[in-house]
């Protein structure tokens, strides 16, 4: 049996803001159906790396290969590619002027060119999966933070992406609302979705992740199974970080 091809790959990826080099040559690959956590201290570049994966942040060097396509190539239609890479943000970023359903269907109608009844059907299905069917006609400001984030996940899922990126999805939530979002992510993971997650939810990482990559100062210092990283880190910087967070 062949080793499976990675769905997403970063090769010597670099990103600088002025003179500050935030990503210093990242090599990373993600297999289909894998769930990988990026952890590390703030400012280590993990969010920037995640945002480079769909080019919300323009890398200053290196390559991103998604599903065999070089995303940095000038011939690539990045909007088509982005439909296959879902993203969930720390601040949810729901459109406040649109209803929950319209939030989900906007890209379906305008980019995938689905007609509105079909798009509405997909939205209904997605809302069912995140447990918010009854909120279909609500506006974002009528929802709790946790509900907003679940709608945001539904919005990303609706496009049937091959990979989903989560940028600190629970950091802006009140503690009692975190659980409902993690539950949805767990369900998504069980359904076989490929996911990259930047998060501080270490317990969730330990339970759910296939692999954890520890980043520090713009580099991936160490990666491996969650057990190995959390119980038996090899590198000094990883040890410091793990002992810091488990205190």
């Amino acid at each position: 049996m062949d080793t499976p091809q990675p769905i997403l790959e970063a090769q010597d990826l670099r990103k600088s803001f002025g003179t500050l080099e935030v990503l210093q040559g990242i090599n990373f690959s993600l297999l289909p159906q894998e769930m990988v956590f990026l952890i590390g201290p703030s400012g280590s570049g993990k969010s920037t790396l995640l945002r480079c994966f769909n080019r919300l942040e323009e890398p200053t060097g290196g390559k991103i290969i998604f599903d065999g396509v070089d995303l940095m190539s000038p011939d690539v239609n990045i909007n088509t590619m982005r439909q296959q890479i879902g993203m969930v943000f720390q601040q949810f970023n729901l459109y406040p002027h649109l209803s929950v359903t319209k939030n989900i269907t906007l890209a379906l109608r305008k980019v995938s060119k689905k007609d509105s009844s079909e798009a509405d059907e997909i939205a209904r299905e997605m809302l069912k999966r995140v447990g918010l069917e009854e909120k279909a006609n609500a506006h974002p400001d009528e929802l709790s933070g946790g509900q907003q984030q679940r709608v945001a996940i539904a919005r990303a899922m609706a496009l049937e992406p091959k990979v989903m990126l989560f940028d600190e999805p629970t950091s802006a939530l009140d503690p009692e609302l975190v659980g409902s979002v993690l539950q949805v992510m767990q369900k998504l993971r069980d359904s076989g979705m490929t996911m990259v997650v930047v998060s501080h939810e270490m317990r969730f990482a330990r339970d759910a992740a296939d692999r954890v990559a520890f980043m520090s100062e713009g580099q991936i210092v160490e990666e491996g199974e969650p057990g190995a990283i959390f119980e038996n880190p090899q590198q000094k910087r990883t040890q410091d970080f793990v002992s810091e967070i488990s205190r």
Partner: peptide, 11 residues
């Protein structure tokens, strides 16, 4: 974030 959310869905 509004720009980013929209662009991330391919708009």
């Amino acid at each position: 974030g509004q720009w980013e959310a929209a662009r991330s869905t391919g708009l």
